[in-house]
Structure formats: structure tokens, C-alpha cells
Write a protein that binds this DNA or RNA. Structure first.
Lengths: 230, 230
DNA sequence: GCACCATTCAAACGCTTGTTTAAATCCACT
DNA sequence: AGTGGATTTAAACAAGCGTTTGAATGGTGC
């Protein structure tokens, strides 16, 4: 809510972010947004041009910063390591640690944004996926390369898939208790960020470093060998 | 598309399932659905009563069966094990294996449905989350109990979280290459179900069996101590 | 005081949405 | 052939949508 202090443009962004997280893009109307922001209906089109442009700006203002932080964290780790190879855990922490830390910022809206982002990654809308891909391009290339270097025995394709799986786990970790109450009537403590971070990291590293699966050479559903390499 | 053979009711369900997966619930209109199904606009309200009821039925007709299969797979494993304890891997395979196998069924629409389901699990809409919780209740209680029995050293809360993380990873695994192309311009082979299954299982088991994280005793946001025991 | 630009405002725009209606059509059964 | 219930149809409905308009308002520099 951030009180009613900031200027109209920011109040609209904040209200939109929160409502998008709660109801999704389509179900959130400009009237809901401007009402919550204490602004006139026409303000969105005046300040942003259109609803689509507003959505894009909601992501841009935080995502750019988030990915810069990720790159900075990775570079800091690499500098600290000197000539020695980076451990996979350090890379994972650079990428997901920054995200979890942002999700811990409740008052500043980071929590809201990360919940929104996690869901949006599998968003159907072509338009949303479009600029998401743009924003992610640089950072993903960089982290993928770092992981390939840190895991010389793991095929590149496998690394990409595990990166993908990790993003799924993180996404659910952050969307958190809302979804978890489907799993259990017990209310889980997702306010404890330190704990969530520790839990998620254990899980991610465990998955990333798991024994490689045995993949048949494709297009051959023969069920003979079940060899497992480490 | 299943040709235009089945009766109107089924054709509507199939068209709706596919369109929901592609565009989401809100962005999919009844006119899109009935056009694709080759039916009159009023057919949805005649056969289902409302759009919401149609959404519920799209899930119900497959989810009930899916969860029955999961329970059956778990019981079969337990019978096979006799008095000996079930291995975590068997439990995970019962739950996620059935899902992945359903996702492999492209022609019958299982693939489409599983993609839809994965995204819907973090769906904002209260109404959707409502009946999803209902459908899942029984099966989750059962699997949670099985995991608790199979992992006596792991706290229950930790098991729930890891179960949650696993669902996230699976969800992303199935929504698959659509989202993955954000990660990489390389097109990944998510048509190879056997391979995807093997990959995901390795990752999930690795995460589930990872060393336990160190969790501070909770409810102490004092910034003094940062103790971390191993 | 006045002119100037940015911002806000109430009102309306055209369009699409889910839903309803009442008539038309189909098909099984006698 | 003809009755009756289920289904399909075209048309209309009110409500809500994103967007546009043109006038009112606000504050700055002269």
C-alpha cells in the first residue's frame, strides 16, 4: 500500500503489481488498479499508454535490477575464487539467493513481485513471454556458461533441464503457502525467509548434483540397460 | 482435435482444455471454445450451466482418474514391498510417474491437460484453487503419510516443503520447452518422454534425499546471531 | 496577472464478454 | 404419421472492458 504518498505513476505501478499477483493480468481491470491507486481511470493510459505497456513496466522496473544483482553476485564469486573453479553451490546461490532475498522484502514489494514473476514464467500470453525472454537472455547465457564450467562431467542439455527444474522449485517455493495449503491444512511458515532459503538451497543442490539419469539414445524405447553413472 | 466425431459435450471439453492451456481461463472466451468445438455459443451454458462449471468439469474428468491412478500405484508398491519399508523413490515414482505418463499421452489430450494443470496449481483464482484442493486432499494425505514413514529422520514440515518443491519442478518439466526457450535458444527435446521422466526423477530424488538444511529456531528476527550449525 | 505545460477529471466511446430467450430442429417411440 | 423431450440455433441482453476525448485544474516562470 505504501500509504498514499508517492506520485501517481508509482502508486499505479504498486497497485497493479499487487493486483496482478492476486488476480492475474486479465482478471485485473484498469478500474481496479486506478481505484486502489487513488487515481483517475484515465491515468494509466496517460502515464503508460496502454494496459500492456503498464504490465511491461511492472516487470521492467524490478527485473532489470534483479538480473543485474544476479550478474554482480556471480562475478563477485568468480573474483573471490580466483583461478580455482567455482563450486556449483556458489553459482546456484548467486542466481536463486538474490531472488529469495528479493522475495524476503515484504514492505518494499519484492515479495509481491517475486510471486508474480514465478507464476508468469509459465504464462501463456505470448506478449508477456516475449519481453521476459528479452530480460532474461543475458543473465541466462552467463549462468549457463558458469554451470557448464563448474560441472564438466554433465552434458549441457542436462544442465539446462536441471536449471529449468530449479526454477520450477523456486517458483513454487515463493508462491509458497498459498499453494501449499492445497497440500496440507497445516499452515506452513513461509514468512521465515532464512529457513525457506536454507530449505530450498538444500533441495536445489541435491537435485543439481544428483546422479545423471540414463538416457536412451532417443527414439529407442528399449528397456534393457539401466546403467547409472555419477 | 479428435476429428469432429464425439458428441457436443465432449467436443466442448476438448476444445476448452486446449484453449485454456494455450491462453488461460480469462483470455479464453466461450465464443472461441464453441467455434473450435463446432457448436453453438449457447451450448456451453446448456450443457454445463456456466463458464465456471465448464472449467471445473475440464479438471474433474481427468484429475479424478489421475489421482485414483496415483493411489493405485502407491498401494501396488506397498503390497509388493510386503513388510519391508517403501523406498522414497518408489513413492515419488508412484506420484510423479503417473503424472509424467499422463503427460506423455499426446493424442488423448493428457499432455494438454497436464500442462494446464501445472500452471493452474499456482493459479490466483480462488474458485479454481478451491476445487483443486478438494480433488487433491485424499491423495496428498496418503502420500505425505507414506513419505513420513519412508523418511523417519526427516521432519514432517521438511517433507511437505520438499514435496512442494518437487511439484514445482514437475510443473516446469511438463510445461516444458515452451518456457525453456526463455532459458536457451536451443530447442530441447521434451517429446522424448522416457528421457524427461528419467531426468526429472533423478533431480527429484536428489532433492528429496538432500542433506537436511540447518533451520534457526524460528520467530527471532534479531539480527545479532547468524549461527549456522552443521 | 497571465500564459504555459503537465496532470487530473468526468463522461462517453465502441466493443466484447457471459448469459438468456424463444423458436427451430432432431430423433426415438407408439 | 405424430407426439414429446432433448438438443441446437440465431438473436438479443445488460454489464464490463480498455481507450479516447475535451474541459478543468495545478503549479512555474515571466
Amino acid at each position: 500500500m505504501a500509504l498514499a504518498e508517492a506520485d501517481t505513476r508509482s502508486r499505479i505501478l504498486n497497485a497493479a503489481e499487487h493486483l496482478f499477483m492476486e488476480h492475474g493480468f486479465e482478471a485485473t481491470t484498469l478500474r481496479m488498479i486506478t481505484t486502489d491507486a487513488g487515481a483517475n481511470l484515465a491515468a494509466v493510459n496517460y502515464h503508460f499508454g496502454s494496459k500492456e505497456a503498464l504490465i511491461a513496466e511492472v516487470f521492467r522496473r524490478r527485473l532489470t535490477w534483479l538480473n543485474e544483482q544476479r550478474l554482480a553476485a556471480l562475478e563477485a564469486a568468480e573474483v573471490g575464487a580466483g583461478d580455482t573453479a567455482l563450486k556449483p553451490r556458489q553459482i546456484v546461490e548467486a542466481f536463486f539467493g538474490v531472488a529469495i532475498r528479493m522475495a524476503a522484502d515484504v514492505e518494499g514489494g519484492g515479495r509481491t513481485f517475486m510471486r508474480l514473476l514465478g507464476r508468469t514464467y509459465t504464462e501463456p500470453s505470448e506478449f508477456v513471454r516475449g519481453f521476459l525472454a528479452e530480460e532474461y537472455a543475458a543473465v541466462v547465457i552467463r549462468f549457463k556458461a558458469a554451470l557448464v564450467r563448474a560441472l564438466p562431467d554433465v552434458p549441457q542439455e542436462e544442465i539446462l533441464w536441471r536449471f529449468h527444474f530449479m526454477m520450477g522449485a523456486m517458483s513454487y517455493a515463493i508462491s509458497g503457502a498459498d499453494a501449499l495449503h492445497i497440500l496440507s491444512d497445516v499452515q506452513l511458515d513461509d514468512a521465515n525467509t532464512e529457513a525457506l532459503y536454507a530449505r530450498l538451497m538444500s533441495f536445489l543442490i541435491g537435485g543439481l548434483r544428483a546422479p545423471l539419469p540414463d538416457i536412451q539414445p532417443k527414439k529407442k524405447p528399449s528397456k534393457s540397460r539401466t546403467r547409472k553413472a555419477a
